[in-house]
Amino acid sequence: MAPEDTGTDAGLDARTRTCASSPRVSTALRIGPARGTPLTLLVDGEPVPCFAGETVAAALLASGRRRLRRSPRAQAPRGAFCLMGSCQECVIRIDGRLEPACLTEVRDGLVVECRGAADPPPVRRLPVG
């Protein structure tokens, strides 16, 4: 995926990019080593290393993924905003369900889908006879 499509930091920071795509975990944003056991999320099909105890929102942020979805009308990029379950900006599909990423703890192998530009697409209707 091209950086401009994913809204990630990948194009801006080589260190994150290297780390995110290698087994070695990026520590660019993480403060200190006192974290949980290493785990892996599957984000839009890509493995993303993270640590037990982190929220999905934090893990995505640490991996350089800032854009989580697009807004419904303007299709503008959106990312985590309030991080306390209030604003709903980080609601993405986690294990098949729409959940606020900021309130959901990571689990090993958790499947995360950031909502794309066309989700939900405009509702189509049959012509009326």
Binding site: L29, R30, I31, G32, A34, R35, E54, T55, A58, L61, A62, G79, A80, F81, C82, L83, M84, C87, C102
Partner: peptide
């Protein structure tokens, strides 16, 4: 762009910049 309170949660709880 995030809330200021959001940042405190990242820092305090998630130990993340």
């Amino acid at each position: 762009v995030m809330g200021l309170a959001a940042a405190t949660i990242l820092l305090k709880s998630q130990r993340l910049l």
